[in-house]
């Protein structure tokens, strides 16, 4: 995982999953995101880095239309997933969010049982026909989130009774339970201790085989460890985007270089 060259090689043959063109976001009068163009590849981990307040979360939340729930937010531009404009009037944002899963900064399991946490998404979208199917979905999701072995005997315990790292993996299991194609993660490790962080990072690497993963992180080491492509945001602009190895070893923009070397941010 630390060997960037191996990672680089796998990148090349994947197709575009998300295409964003000219994305602008305003919160009331505040221009939070300015003209962002980006292509996110399938089966790839893409990291968004940049100083805090630069618009990483804002852009991430455009990809599953979570910004729709913010009254002051206005989104302009064109975002397509598999060529479909997700801001088209025919696209249902609620269904989109099942297709584009999201994991948040602070682990936020529902105060319900572990089972119900994972089963909630499939249940409201009617993805299973009976209890046996649901059991199977719950098990696969927990396995994908590398949590199954730890919780298989206590599925009826409250999700909030788990440790922080387990809670975050439960949230990942909950997000993958609706079989999304894209998984968005907004600083998923910032509330975790180093051991839990390592587990989640390892998990992210596994998830890449099935999803297109977009991860916001404030830790450049993390971006280097888990991602194949990195986008650097600064003051609402997408400054530089490319293969992670290139961004870190050979940045083209002086702002990227200053940030990576620790001079801004």
């Amino acid at each position: 995982m630390t060997d960037l060259r191996i990672v680089e090689r796998t990148v090349e043959n994947h197709a575009n999953k998300i295409t964003a063109r000219g994305v602008q976001v305003h919160y009331g009068d505040k221009h939070a995101l300015k003209d962002v163009d980006v292509d996110i590849l399938d089966k790839t981990v893409t990291a968004f880095i940049g100083p805090s307040g630069c618009g990483k979360s804002t852009f991430l939340r455009c990809l599953n239309r979570m910004n729709d729930t913010v009254a002051t937010a206005r989104v302009k531009g064109d975002i397509r997933i598999d060529g479909v404009d997700i801001y088209d009037r025919r696209v249902d944002p609620v269904q989109l969010r099942a297709k584009v899963g999201m994991v948040f900064q602070k682990p936020n399991p529902f105060p319900k049982s572990i089972y119900d946490n994972v089963a909630y998404g499939p249940k409201i979208h009617g993805l299973t026909r009976n209890k046996a199917e649901m059991d199977a979905v719950v098990e696969t999701s927990l396995r994908k989130a590398a949590l199954w072995n730890e919780v298989k005997d206590r599925l009826q315990d409250s999700g909030t009774s788990l440790s922080g790292g387990q809670q975050q993996r439960l949230c990942i299991a909950r997000a993958v339970a609706t079989s999304p194609e894209v998984l968005l993660m907004d600083e998923p490790c910032s509330a975790l201790d180093p051991i839990a962080t390592a587990q989640v990072e390892e998990l992210i690497d596994d998830l890449r085989s099935q999803f297109s993963v977009v991860i916001v992180t404030h830790s450049m080491q993390q971006a280097a460890r888990v991602s194949q492509r990195t986008a650097f945001f600064h003051l609402g602009h997408l400054v530089e985007y490319g293969e992670t190895g290139n961004i870190f070893t050979n940045p083209r923009d002086p702002r990227t270089e200053s940030y990576i070397t620790g001079r801004i941010g």
Binding site: T69, Y120, G121, I124
Partner: peptide
């Protein structure tokens, strides 16, 4: 957010 995030 958690509930909205899974498409509720």
């Amino acid at each position: 957010e958690a509930a909205l995030g899974v498409g509720a």
